[in-house]
């Protein structure tokens, strides 16, 4: 089965993924009025869970400057981010299941755990300070002809360069 191997089993070329993402992003923008973003959804979930835990974040200056207050009124789960992010996870799951490449991945060692945790915290913090990750702040920003996407992209390039130097020299 040649088509099965090509479409389901083997990874698609980068340019095919790029065109498809661009097309879906345009459709998403048409229907929701907002281009694709991911981490803002994490922010709303994080803030919502803190509220449930009894920590009132609505008084924090950061949240007063964001759309969170409107989101909190409707319930933090009921945003389009929740739907999109769940969709990404389910879609990825479907793809690996169809390719029969599903696998539970273990933590390799303590070092991987610690480095990943620190990396995750830095990334999460940075996306909120920059108001976007590589999707909302870079991909969708450039697609919207906004200058900040190019600035974020260029800064990411420098960060990735420094990051890989550190990784290569000290971590592997």
């Amino acid at each position: 089965m040649d088509w099965y191997k090509k479409i389901v089993k083997e990874p698609w070329p980068y340019w095919v993924g790029g065109i498809l993402i661009a097309m879906v992003n345009v459709v998403l923008f048409y229907f929701t009025g907002k281009p694709w973003a991911i981490t803002t959804g994490f922010l709303y979930w994080g803030a919502g869970l803190l509220q449930i835990a009894g920590i009132d974040v609505t008084g924090w200056e950061y949240f007063q400057r964001s759309e969170y207050l409107e989101v909190a009124e409707k319930g933090f789960v009921s945003t389009h981010y929740t739907l999109l992010n769940t969709g990404i996870i389910l879609g990825a799951l479907l793809a690996v299941l169809m390719a029969s490449q599903f696998k539970f991945k273990k933590l390799k060692n303590r070092k991987q755990f610690v480095v990943a945790l620190i990396g995750g915290i830095i990334m999460g913090y940075s996306t909120r300070i920059a108001f976007g990750c590589n999707i909302g702040g870079f991909l969708s920003a450039i697609g919207s002809l906004s200058l900040h996407g190019w600035i974020l992209g260029f800064s990411m390039l420098i960060g990735a360069w420094i990051g890989s130097k550190i990784l290569f020299k000290y971590l592997i």
Binding site: K105, K106, K108, Q112, S164, L167, F168, I172
Partner: peptide
């Protein structure tokens, strides 16, 4: 390179 994500396998191979 099991359980390791990009770009670690590539960098390990390079090294």
């Amino acid at each position: 390179c099991m359980y390791e994500a990009c770009p670690i396998p590539l960098l390990k191979a390079l090294k």
